[in-house]
């Protein structure tokens, strides 16, 4: 069911002639789709335009749909009111570490499941799949205790924000499925030529797995970028906070300065939107194929 045929539908759309005869029903369709699209995109417009207004225009009622004057200096003001550079560095550091860590652990494990024979394979694989069913809620309190002084003693460190996420059952599963679909003949040929597992993985399999690697990387990066509850629990110092905590603290501190709060929200939302616009094909198809939970 989730085996997406999104690609085929795109292809079939491309085969049909681009210009179709005018039909009243297509006007209705565009009216329906267009008004919904406008509703869904409008909050972004509202965020951006509020961020460009000055304090008085932002807090006036009725609001102005188009700013009377543009005040780009709001972004500089908002930026200087909180350690945003630090927040961003923290988030980038944590998200990059999580992504690279997951790629390494998941690639190795997925390869073992797809191409190696060993004792206990099916049991271990079942256990890995079982982690997909353990919801966050079950592990968040014990993980909080584990990070505490009696065990790992990692509160207020980057490690606490990284370590719990560098192994992901879901990423292992996705990569294994892809590795299994890789032609076995290539593997056998490489083995006969004397290539070991690591050699084959590194020089043949991985270069041919870019789409799935990008998908896994994007999923993990986005999840880490958007993480909120866990960093809220394990950090108390401002200098270790990620952007999501930063923007939340900022909005409670500058609650009535709506133009600055919206400028701050723009900081946090914009990079992800840019990433999405660049990689949207990968992302949308990835979500469709994997059918993962939100």
């Amino acid at each position: 069911m989730l085996a997406s045929r999104g690609d085929t539908t795109d292809a079939s759309a491309a085969v049909k002639p681009r210009r179709r005869p005018f039909r009243p029903s297509s006007v209705l369709k565009h009216l329906w789709l267009g008004s919904l699209a406008a509703l869904l995109v409008f909050p972004f417009y509202w965020m951006l335009t509020t961020a460009f207004k000055d304090f008085f225009e932002a807090s006036q009622f009725p609001p102005t749909l188009i700013p009377r004057e543009l005040h780009p200096e709001n972004f500089a003001t908002a930026w200087s009111e909180a350690p945003w550079a630090r927040y961003f560095l923290n988030t980038i550091l944590v998200a990059t570490s999580v992504t690279i860590g997951t790629l390494i652990t998941a690639t190795l494990a997925a390869y073992a499941f797809a191409r190696m024979e060993f004792k206990g394979k099916s049991v271990i694989f079942t256990l890995v799949l079982a982690t997909l069913m353990i919801p966050n809620e079950a592990t968040i309190i014990p993980n909080f205790v584990i990070m505490g002084r009696r065990y790992l003693n990692l509160y207020d460190t980057y490690w606490a924000q990284i370590l719990p996420f560098v192994a992901s059952g879901f990423s292992i599963f996705l990569l294994r499925q892809f590795f299994l679909s890789f032609p076995k003949e290539l593997f056998d040929a490489a083995r006969i030529d004397g290539a070991g597992h690591l050699r084959f993985l590194w020089s043949i399999l991985l270069p041919n797995s870019t789409p799935v690697l990008v998908t896994v990387a994007l999923f993990n990066f986005l999840a880490s970028w958007n993480a909120f509850l866990w960093p809220l629990l394990v950090t108390s110092k401002d200098e270790l906070r990620p952007v999501q905590l930063g923007v939340q603290v900022f909005s409670s501190e500058f609650g009535s300065q709506y133009h600055l709060t919206m400028a701050a929200a723009t900081f946090v939302i914009l990079p992800v939107i840019v990433l999405f616009l660049v990689a949207q094909r990968q992302l949308i198809q990835g979500y469709a194929r994997a059918g993962i939970r939100g």
């Binding site: 909050p43 965020m47 958007n226 909120f228 999501q244 923007v247 939340q248 946090v268 939302i269 939107i273």
Partner: peptide, 10 residues
């Protein structure tokens, strides 16, 4: 794909 935190603030 936008963060629930920032979007909820909006």
């Amino acid at each position: 794909i936008t963060s629930t935190v920032a979007a909820a603030i909006v």
